[in-house]
Design a protein around this nucleic acid. Structure first.
Lengths: 319, 319
DNA sequence: ACGCGAGGATAGCCTGAACCTATCGAGACG
DNA sequence: CGTCTCGATAGGTTCAGGCTATCCTCGCGT
C-alpha cells in the first residue's frame, strides 16, 4: 500500500534533493525517511532517486511521480479545508421549512441575524403548510422546519423543540361590524375564507367550529395565506388566522376570541435519525437568541406566548 | 494524519451505504473499518455519515469529502500506472549520443530493432564528436553515448562497455592514383581534408601522422563527417576515416594502411553515478544482440572488430 | 597516501496503530 | 416480546514506522 506519508517524504526529498535535510524538514530522523522512500520505491517497483553523492536527482519514474504526488497531497489539504469550512460555518446550507404565519414575522428577523453572522451559509426557505413541511422533513428535503404541533404531537420520526405558542384571531374587513371580542360561535353567521388542504389551519378551524357546534360556511376556499388575507380584505368573509400575520396589514382588523380562544404550538423539528448539522444547530441558537431578545426588550408581539423552556430542555437532542 | 486507507474505507461506505458490506468489499473486518472511519471523522473534525439504522447517509461534510477522496485515490492509481509504464518500457525516453561513424551503420539498425520492440519509448539521438558527447553525458543531457575510447581511457566519471573496434582507412577520390595498401607515411605527400575540433578523429589523425614523422598539410579543415567526405570526393585531398562510413559512397575509394594500421575502440558510456534507466538497459541489450547477430551471420563489415566480451563483462555496472 | 567529514544505508529496539475475534446494544419486525 | 440486523466497543496480537547507534563509501584536504 502506498501511503500519504511516503508521498510527503518523497516530495521533501524531491524538493531538497537531500535526504538529511528532507528529514529535518519532515521532522523525522533520516533513517526513517530513507526507509519510507525505499518502501515507496519497492512498492512502485522502480527507483525514484539517483543517489549520487551530493547530487540526488529524480529518475524518470520519480519525475513521473512528482506532479501526481503534489496533486494528491494538495487534494488532501483541500479535503481538510472543505470540511473545516463546513464545520466552521463559513460554508454550508440550511434547508428550512416554515409555515406562512412564521415566515412573516419571526423568521425574517432570525434569518437576517443568521445571515449577518454566517454569511457563507446558503439559506433555502420553503414556505408551506405544516403537513407538507413534515413530509418534506421526513423525505430528507429539509434540514429543519418550524411546524405546528398537532394535538397528538409530531410524527414519531421527528424530534421537535417548542418555540412559541400563538393565538388565532378573527381577521375581518374593517367594514364589517364585529364586536370587540366574542365567542367563536358568533362566526356561525359569517361566511369564511378557508385555506387549501395541507394547511394545518384548515383542520384547526374546522375542528374548532364543530366543537362550537356549527359547520362553517365557506365564501371561498383553497388559497394560500396571502390570498386568504386579501380575500378577507376584500370583504368576502372572515378567517381564523395567527395574530402574527396581521401586523402591517392596514386593511384588516383583528378580533380576538373570548377565552379560552384557540392556541397553536409552534416547534422546531428535525429528523430524529439524522443529527442536525453544525449549521442547523447554529440556526437554532440564533432563533432562540432572537426570541429571548424579544422577552428582554418586552417586545413580544400580541398573541404570542413564549414558552419559558430552560436551555437544558431546548438542547435536548441537539448536542 | 489522514491516510489513504481511511479514504478507501470511506469510499466503500459511501458507495455501499452499509458498514458491514463495505467491510466485506474492503476485505477487512467490520470493526476495523468502523474504527478507521471514526479516526477519519475525528481527524477532520466532523461526522461523515449519519448512522440511521439501515439508512447510512453522507453528512454535508461527507458530501464535500466524497469527490476529493475519489480523485485522490484515482490519482494514486494513476501514479502507480505511470511508473509501471516506465518500468515496463511501454513509455520512456532515451537520449543517445553517437559519433557520425556509428550513426551511419550500426546505430540505424539497432535503433530500428529497438523501436520495433519498444515502440512507446522516445528516441533522441545526438550526433557529435566524441568529446562533445562526453561533455553532454557528464552534463546530464544524454543517457547513453557511443564514444571513442581515447588511449588514456574515458572520463573517470563515466562507465563504458567496449562495443567494437574499427580500423581507419584512407578515403580518397578514385581519380587519385594510390597504391593498394601503404604505410601512413605515404600521406606525407598528399594534402588532407581535416575535421573540425571536437572530433576525436582530428586528434587521432594528427597524432598518427606525427608518430609517422610528418606534419600533415590541410587542404581544407573544419567540416563535419559528411562535409569531409564530400570534399574528398571532390578531390580536395585525402582523409583518415573509419571504414564504416564508406559503404554506399560510390565516389570514394578506401585504402587500408599497412600493418599495424590505426584502430579505435568504440564504447557505450554512461555516467557512473547515475544508474542507467530500464530503457537504457534495454537499448544496450538490443545493441549487443544486433552485434551478435552480425557475428552469427558472418556479416561483420570489413574493418570492424567485434570485441568478444563475455556477457558478464558486458553486464558490468549495468545491473 | 591517508585521515576525515558528509551523507545515505543498515541494524536493532520500541511504541503505537491497525487488525482480528468476541460481544454489546439498540432499532426493526414478526 | 423474542429475534435479527448491524454498527459500536473491548481486549489481545502483530507489524509498521519511528528512534539511536553505527556502518560504508566517497570526496577532499593535508
Amino acid at each position: 500500500m502506498v501511503t500519504l506519508q511516503q508521498l510527503v517524504y518523497f516530495l521533501a526529498v524531491a524538493e531538497t534533493r537531500h535526504f538529511t535535510r528532507a528529514a529535518e524538514r519532515a521532522r523525522v530522523a533520516q533513517p526513517s525517511l530513507s526507509k519510507q522512500i525505499h518502501g515507496l520505491e519497492s512498492e512502485l517497483g522502480a527507483p525514484l532517486f539517483t543517489r549520487a553523492r551530493g547530487n540526488i536527482a529524480l529518475t524518470p519514474a520519480g519525475e513521473a511521480l512528482l506532479p501526481v504526488a503534489k496533486r494528491i497531497l494538495s487534494d488532501v489539504d483541500t479535503a481538510r479545508q472543505e470540511v473545516a469550512e463546513l464545520v466552521g460555518l463559513r460554508r454550508g446550507r440550511i434547508r428550512l421549512g416554515a409555515t406562512p404565519s412564521l415566515c412573516v414575522g419571526v423568521l425574517a428577523d432570525a434569518l437576517r441575524m443568521f445571515h449577518d453572522r454566517y454569511p457563507g451559509i446558503e439559506l433555502v426557505v420553503e414556505e408551506g403548510g405544516s403537513r407538507d413541511l413534515t413530509a418534506a422533513l421526513l423525505g430528507g428535503d429539509l434540514d429543519l422546519a418550524l411546524v405546528i404541533v398537532p394535538p397528538q404531537g409530531v410524527d414519531p420520526a421527528l424530534t421537535s423543540t417548542p418555540v412559541l405558542g400563538e393565538h388565532l384571531v378573527v381577521a375581518s374587513s374593517p367594514d364589517l361590524d364585529l364586536p370587540e371580542s366574542f365567542p367563536l360561535a358568533v362566526l356561525r353567521d359569517y361566511p369564511m375564507v378557508m385555506f387549501r388542504r395541507g394547511y394545518d389551519l384548515r383542520e384547526t378551524t374546522l375542528q374548532a367550529c364543530r366543537a362550537a357546534g356549527f359547520e362553517p360556511r365557506f365564501a371561498v376556499e383553497g388559497g394560500e395565506m396571502d390570498a386568504v388575507l386579501r380575500f378577507v380584505e376584500a370583504g368576502l368573509g372572515v378567517a381564523l388566522v395567527p395574530s402574527l400575520v396581521l401586523p402591517g396589514r392596514r386593511g384588516l382588523r383583528a378580533t380576538s376570541l373570548r377565552a379560552p380562544g384557540i392556541r397553536r404550538k409552534v416547534a422546531l423539528a428535525h429528523r430524529t435519525d439524522v443529527p442536525p448539522t453544525a449549521a442547523a444547530r447554529a440556526f437554532r441558537s440564533v432563533l432562540f437568541e432572537h426570541l429571548d431578545a424579544w422577552v428582554a426588550a418586552d417586545a413580544v408581539p400580541v398573541g404570542v406566548e413564549l414558552t419559558p423552556e430552560t436551555p437544558a430542555v431546548r438542547a435536548q437532542s441537539w448536542t
